[in-house]
Amino acid sequence: MNPLVTRFSVDSPTEYGRTAVLALGAQSALALAYLAATDAGLAAPRTLAIPLVWITAAAVGVRHAGRPESGRGVLALAGLVGAAYAIILGWVTGAVGLSSGVATGLDVVLLPPWWGPMVRYDGPLVSLFLFPYRVIGYGALAYLVSLAVRDVAEYGSSAGVAGLIALGSCASCALPLVAAVGSTLGGVGLGFGTTPAAAGGTYLLATVAYVLSVAVLTVRPRVGGS
C-alpha cells in the first residue's frame, strides 16, 4: 500500500497579497459609487473596516482554496452541507428567522458602505436582515465548508487518516457560531439597527473568528499516495 503524504495547499504570499489588493480596490470603487448614488453616510473608521476585512478574506479564500475533483453525488452532498451551514449561521446571528407575524414586506436601509444597503424582509413565514458583507462572507464560508466536505468524501473511505485530517480542518467552522452565541449571551447582539456601531468587542470577535475560519478552510491539508 502506498504511504500517505500530507501537504498543505498554500499559494505564495505574493499571490495572496495580489488577490487582497484587487479585492480592496474593487470594494473601494463600489463603495464610492454607492455613496455617490445614494444618501448613505460614512461611519467610524473601525466600523467601515470590518466589512472590508470580511470581504477581502472571502475573496482570498475562494480564489486560493484547493478544489478536489468530485463526482456529481459528492458535489451535491457538499453543496447541501455548505448551504445548511450558511443557513445555520444566518439563524444564529439573526439574519434569518421566523416571521414576526406581521408581514411588512421588503425594506432597504441605506447604511454605510457594505453595511448597506441592508435588506429587511418580513414575510408570512420568514424574516431576513441581510448586511451585504455578511451575505458575501457567509456565502464564501459555506463554499469553503463544501470543499472540506469534498476532501472528506474523497479521502475518508480509502484513507481514514486523510479523512480525519480533512474533517479536523473543518473544526474552525464552529468559530463564527461561537462568536455569534457569545454576542447573544452578552446581550450585545449583532446589531440590526439603523446605525451599526462596532465599538464593542462583538464585531471584532466575530471578525477574528471569521478570518481564522477562512484561513483554516483555505489552507487545507491534502493527502494522497506517493
Rank of each mutant, 00 (worst) to 15 (best):
N2D: 13
P3Y: 00
T6K: 08
R7F: 01
F8C: 08
D11A: 11
P13Y: 06
T14S: 11
T14E: 11
T14G: 04
G17M: 12
R18G: 03
A23R: 05
S28F: 15
A29F: 12
A29E: 10
L32E: 06
A33H: 04
L35V: 03
A37N: 01
A37W: 05
A37F: 06
A37I: 06
A40T: 09
A40C: 08
G41P: 05
G41V: 09
P45D: 14
R46Q: 15
L48A: 15
A49N: 12
P51F: 14
L52Y: 15
W54F: 13
W54N: 11
A58P: 01
A59R: 03
A59G: 03
A59E: 04
G61K: 13
G61I: 08
P68W: 01
E69W: 02
E69P: 00
G71L: 01
G71K: 02
G71F: 01
G73E: 01
A76I: 05
L77S: 12
L77M: 11
G79N: 02
A84L: 03
A86S: 05
I87P: 00
L89C: 11
L89K: 09
L89Q: 14
G90H: 03
W91E: 07
V92Y: 04
G94F: 07
G94A: 12
G94H: 10
A95L: 07
G97H: 06
S99L: 03
S99C: 02
G101L: 09
G101A: 10
L106I: 14
V108G: 12
L110W: 04
L110F: 06
W114H: 15
G116S: 15
M118Y: 14
V119R: 08
R120T: 14
P124D: 13
P124I: 12
L125Q: 02
S127A: 13
S127H: 11
L128G: 05
L128S: 07
L130R: 11
L141E: 07
L141G: 05
A142C: 03
V145H: 05
R150E: 03
R150A: 07
D151H: 13
D151P: 00
V152S: 02
A153G: 04
A153T: 04
Y155H: 10
S158P: 02
I165G: 10
L167S: 08
L167V: 05
L167R: 07
P176T: 09
P176G: 10
A179T: 09
A179Y: 08
A179I: 09
A180V: 01
A180S: 13
V181F: 13
S183K: 07
L185H: 10
G186R: 09
L190S: 09
G191M: 09
G193W: 11
T195D: 14
P196F: 15
P196C: 15
A197L: 11
A199I: 11
L204P: 04
L205A: 14
A206G: 15
T207E: 09
V208C: 13
A209M: 06
A209H: 02
Y210D: 10
Y210T: 10
V211D: 05
S213L: 08
V219T: 07
V223M: 01
G225K: 00
